[in-house]
Design a protein around this nucleic acid. Sequence first.
DNA 1: GCCGCAATGTATACAGCGTCCACACAAGGT
DNA 2: ACCTTGTGTGGACGCTGTATACATTGCGGC
Lengths: 209, 209
Amino acid sequence: MMDASGGIRARHTYHHGDLRRALLDAGIALARDGGPDAVVLREATRRAGVVPNAAYRHFASRHALLQAVRAAALAALAVAMEKQLARLRDGGPRAGLRAIGTAYLRFARTEPGLFRTAFAVPGEAETAGSPAMAGKSGLNPFQLLGVALDRMVAAGVLPAERRPGAEYLAWSAVHGLAMLVLEGPLRRLPRTQTRVIEQRLLDMVDKGL
Amino acid sequence: MMDASGGIRARHTYHHGDLRRALLDAGIALARDGGPDAVVLREATRRAGVVPNAAYRHFASRHALLQAVRAAALAALAVAMEKQLARLRDGGPRAGLRAIGTAYLRFARTEPGLFRTAFAVPGEAETAGSPAMAGKSGLNPFQLLGVALDRMVAAGVLPAERRPGAEYLAWSAVHGLAMLVLEGPLRRLPRTQTRVIEQRLLDMVDKGL
DNA sequence: GCCGCAATGTATACAGCGTCCACACAAGGT
DNA sequence: ACCTTGTGTGGACGCTGTATACATTGCGGC
C-alpha cells in the first residue's frame, strides 16, 4: 500500500479485481518491446501494483505466463491475417495465399517482439485448437494458411496431390525469411530491399509449391 | 583449491593454462544440450574449475562468451556442409545446392542445441568474414551457399538475373523448415515424414528459385 | 445478519544468476 | 632483485524465480 511512486496506479482495495488480465497485459507489453526474455514475472507484478507471489495465484510459473503471452501473440497474428484477407476483393485463390504470407511478414516487421515471442518459444501446438491463439474467425494462423491452400485446390490452381503438407512448405519459407530479416544476416538491409526479397520469396512459393 | 568433488579436474597451479579455451569448450557443451539459454557463465567457470569472476579476464560478459560459442556453432555447421559437399561425386551443380540444404537440415536435427545457439541469438554477421565461424575452406555457411549458387549460374542451370539475393530465398526456406521441425508445429512429426517434407522443400527451392 | 470457507494478495526467505571492486598470486623484462 | 602486468580469488550487490506461511477479503449457508 505504499506507492504513488511506481506510477502505475495505486490500489486501494485488497483484491485487484482482474489480476490475471493485468498480468497478461503487462506480459504482452513486455514481450512487445523486448521479446520473450523480457517477459519477467516480477516486472509484470510490479506493473500490476502487486507483490511478486500474487502472480502464482493465476499462473503456475513464469513459463505459464509466457505461454499465455505467446497465445495472445498468435491471436494477434491471426487477426492481422484476417484483416489482410478481408481487404481482398477477390483476386483469385492465389491472392489468398499471398495475403497470408504478406500479413505474416508484415507482422514480423511491425511487431518483432510479439513475433519472436510467438515462435522463439517451444510451446505446444499451432495445431491444437485453443481459441486463445485464434483470431475472430476462430482459426489460428496455421489453420488460416490451411484454408487458403484448400481454396487453391478447390479452384484448381494447386494439384490435389500436392496439397498434403503444403502448409509446411509455405510456412517454412515465409517463417525463415521473417527470422532472417528480424535477427539474421538480413537485419540491416534497407527496407525497400527487404520488400523486394519478400516478393520474390512469395513468388518462389507460388511457383515451387 | 578445494574440489575433488566437482569431478572436473582439480587444478594445482594458480594459473589455469588456457582458461579461455576451457570456458569456450564448456560453453559449447552447455549450448549443445540446452541451447543458448543454457550457456551460463557461472556454470562454465565451475566446469573449468575456476571462480566465476575469472571468466571476465577472457570475456567481457556472458554475452561475449555466448557470441564465441555461436561462432563455434557456425563453424561446426560449415564443416558439416563441407563434408556433405565432399561426398559428392559430381552429380551436377544442382547437387551442390542440395548438399548444402541437406547438411543444414541434418545439422539442425542432430545438433539442435548448437543450431539454436547459432541462429536464435541476434549477433552480427554471417556476412562478416570472421574465421572463427568458418569451416576448413575458410568460408562460413552463408558463403558456402553463395558458392553453390555461383556454380549453378556458371553451369547455366540458374539464370544470372535471378542470382542476386538467391541465397536469401534458399536460406529462408531451409532455415524456416529447420525451425518448424525443431521447435515448431512439426516437432513431433515422425522422422520418416520429416524427411519427406525436407525433400519436397528442397524440390520447391530448386523449382522456384 | 452472522459465520466459516475458499480465493486471493502479502511477508519473508532462499538459491542462482551476472557483474563490480579490492586483493593475491605468478611470470617476465629491467 | 624489483616492479609491472596479466590472471585467478573473495566478497558483495541487486536482480531473478519460487516455496512456505500468513493476512485479508468475498461469498454461500444458516
